[in-house]
Structure formats: structure tokens, C-alpha cells
Design a protein around this nucleic acid. Structure first.
Lengths: 225, 225
DNA sequence: CCATGATGGATCGTATACGATTTCGTACAT
DNA sequence: ATGTACGAAATCGTATACGATCCATCATGG
């Protein structure tokens, strides 16, 4: 009763959110060992809720878990990054396509503004801000997708990517400029009320483009697709 | 040491598998209340592992969970079915497209044989066998997809569908025959080494077709897409 | 000097116990 | 008869405790 919130989100929920956030913003780097008792101590609770939180994170692919050994923040090798990006290209593309006919003029206005700010980031070399604004930009484009499952998959994909990027993966040098231009193309398609399928494929290609740029940078064959 | 398996999969794992199976084959119908202590008793273990199992099932969307209340097998309304089917159409289509250029002649031969058996099921009215063979057929087509994330999403989608179908959703009457014909079309595309994109879209359309048939049967507007 | 096996510590897996929350039935007042 | 308040039962949430497993270290023998 009383004031605002006895909102004691359950301890397991708090543990989940704490770890999720720390993985997302890079405080916990891939490979870091997550010891139940330590986390429990820090949170001032017992290990049971922490266990549950970690299993949830595992289900989302943010941590890996080994029996009788423990959990570590999910490590990334190139193929994992590739697979995650590819999956995201598909589900985010689909979400954007499904959202297209529900998007409002106000949405488009905000997206356009964000893309302008992205262009500024290019001039001033602000990679952190760029990443954040880029997330927001795409969130607007797919946000109206009426299928919550697909939205969930998109969010999970972004979370995994953020976990990776925050650690060591950085933007591919030349790619950002190209990215802003492709954003512009997407906005024009939306303005022109292009078909959902066309928009889906453009959104997918946008992400695939980033993936290819990354692969080229690492001198890897663009196959494995 | 010794014989084959001290393979004590952890109790939480066994609990998970048991519940997963029972939900999948319809022993546990949607809406059924999952009481931790009862399940623990049946398994001869304590509630802690069961909790974990249920949270995993929740993450997969097979059960819903409410704080301080408990878990129930996920209920289905039409929109949930629709969303699940739509998501599956996208990820399974993508998986099939990505698997296309890796599929072997032997795979195609088996798929063709399965489709012939499906045709037999039509004649003899064997809906249960039809569903099983249909699963196998599609599993062959997307199975070679080299992206494990996408495969995982496909499997989750099928699991959810199975959970729904086993309960009360039945095949749409006329749809099965059409389905077999579309399978044939898919096989021909694969034989002809059609482009991955073309195959992806055919696979997606195949599932979307089932969805539309369902919607039409329920006299629902084919919108919501 | 290297290989092999034993030992201890760290950590996980699960059981049990108890407090917290919800739910449902019942009694009472209107 | 109906709506509300109270209380008991059922169930969940978490803490604590202990056994099981793994890993690293060190001793021992070749």
C-alpha cells in the first residue's frame, strides 16, 4: 500500500535487469565469469534468484552456461557475430516491412531528424552517440510492427549486438557514412508508400550491408551466407 | 565411469524435457495450471529445479507465468496463433532460403518421398500422421540452414504451433490438399536451383497460405497483417 | 624433467524451511 | 438475496544448508 511503489520487482527480476544492463553497456565484457554467490552478495540476496536471472539471460543468448562450471558473458567470434547480424537482418527487415503501413507522419519526422543528427555525428566523430541514435532511428522504423513476437526477436537481436559492440567490436570505418545514406533511402521509400515487401528488403539490405562491410574489413570471404 | 550413462541430466533438465514433451503432444492442454509442488512430487525432486524448467518454458512462450500466482500452459487466442504463424513464415522462409544451396540430392529424394506419403494421408484421412510427416518434410527443407540462431527460432515456432494444434486447433479442411501441391512446387524450385530469394518467398507464401486459410475459415478479416 | 594420480578449494545443484502473497470460501450486514 | 469483510488454505518467493562436481595445485614415481 501507500506511496508509489512497493514495486518490489522480485529479486530475480532485479538481478536480471542489473546483469542485462551491465552486459548491454559493456561493464561486463564477454568471457567474464559470472559467479552466483558474488552476484548474490552484491545484490544482498541469496543465490536462488540469481540463478534464475542467469538462466533467463542464457535463453536470450547473452550468457553461456556450463553444467557444474558456471556462467560467463557470451563470447563472440566472427561467426557468431555474423549469425546474429544475419538473423537480425531478417527479423528486423520483416518488422520494418510490417510496420510500414502503420507508421505516422510524426514518426517519419522524428526519424528524419535523427538521421540528420547521425549526419552530424559523422562530422564530429561521435561514435558512441552515433550508435545510440542509430538504435533510436531503427526503433522508430520497426516499432509499429503489430506482431509482438517479431518485435521481441528484434529486441533480442539488438541486445546481443549491443553486448558485442560494447566490448570490442567497433563500427566499420567507412560504413557509417554509407549507412546514413541508406537511411535516407529507407525514409524515401516510406514516404512514397512503397510496398511492404520492398521496404522489408531495403531494411534487410541495409543491415546486410553493414555485415558485408565488416566481413570485408576482416578479409573474410563473403560466403558463409 | 562404467557402462553407458551416468548421464544424469540435471533434474531441472529432466523437468524441462518432460513438460516440453507433454505440452508438445497435447497431454497438457492450454490453460492447464502447472503447480510447482505437484510436478516436483511427480518427478521425485524438489520445487527448485521445476521452477527453473518452467522459466525456461516461459522464455520459449510455451507457458505463461504470473508473479505469486503460478504458471499455466500458454493459452491461444486467434491473434496469438496468427502472430506465431506469421513469425514462423518469416523465419522458416528465411531458413529454407538459406538452406537451399546446401541441400543434397538425398535430401530432396527423401522430401519427395515424404510428400508422396502426405498425398496418401489425404486419401486415407490420417490427420495425425499427416501432421507428423509434414513436420518432417519441412525439417528437411530448412534443416541445412547454416545459421543456428535462425534454426533455433524455427524450432521454437514449430514447438509453439504443435502445442496449439495438439489442443484444439485442427487442420483447415481443404488446405491439406493445396499444401501438398505447394510442396511439389517447392521441390521443383529446389530442383531447378532457383535463387535463394525465390525459394524463401515460396516457403513463406506456403505458410502464409495456411494462415490465410485458417483466417478465412474463422471468417476473420485477412488483415491484421 | 615430465607424466600421473591424489588432495583441497571453489562453485554449482538441489533439498528443505519459512515468510509473503494471492485466492477462495464463509459469515455477516444491509 | 446480494455485496463486503474477514480468515484459512494454497501457492509462490527466497534463504539457508549440504552434497556433488569440477578445477588447480602439488606430491610422487618413472
Amino acid at each position: 500500500m501507500s506511496t508509489a511503489a512497493t514495486t518490489t520487482a522480485s529479486k530475480s527480476e532485479r538481478a536480471y535487469q542489473l546483469l542485462h544492463e551491465r552486459i548491454g553497456n559493456g561493464q561486463l565484457v564477454p568471457g567474464y565469469r559470472l559467479v552466483l554467490s558474488s552476484i548474490a552478495d552484491e545484490l544482498g540476496c541469496s543465490v536462488v534468484p540469481v540463478r534464475e536471472a542467469i538462466r533467463r539471460l542464457e535463453a536470450e543468448g547473452l550468457v553461456t552456461f556450463e553444467r557444474n562450471v558456471g556462467a560467463t558473458v557470451a563470447s563472440i567470434d566472427a561467426t557468431l557475430y555474423l549469425h546474429t547480424m544475419q538473423t537480425l537482418s531478417i527479423v528486423e527487415g520483416a518488422a520494418t516491412g510490417l510496420a510500414a503501413h502503420l507508421i505516422t507522419d510524426e514518426d517519419l519526422r522524428r526519424a528524419r531528424e535523427l538521421n540528420n543528427q547521425l549526419r552530424e555525428c559523422l562530422e564530429n566523430f561521435e561514435p558512441v552517440r552515433f550508435t545510440r541514435l542509430n538504435n533510436e532511428f531503427h526503433a522508430i522504423l520497426y516499432g509499429r510492427c503489430p506482431n509482438p513476437h517479431i518485435l521481441d526477436l528484434v529486441h533480442r537481436g539488438w541486445n546481443r549486438l549491443n553486448a558485442m559492440r560494447a566490448s570490442s567490436f567497433d563500427l566499420v570505418p567507412g560504413r557509417a557514412r554509407e549507412s546514413v545514406a541508406e537511411h535516407e533511402g529507407l525514409l524515401e521509400l516510406l514516404d512514397a508508400k512503397a510496398s511492404p515487401h520492398q521496404i522489408e528488403m531495403a531494411a534487410r539490405a541495409h543491415r546486410t550491408g553493414t555485415l558485408n562491410a565488416y566481413m570485408a574489413q576482416r578479409n573474410q570471404p563473403p560466403s558463409l551466407l
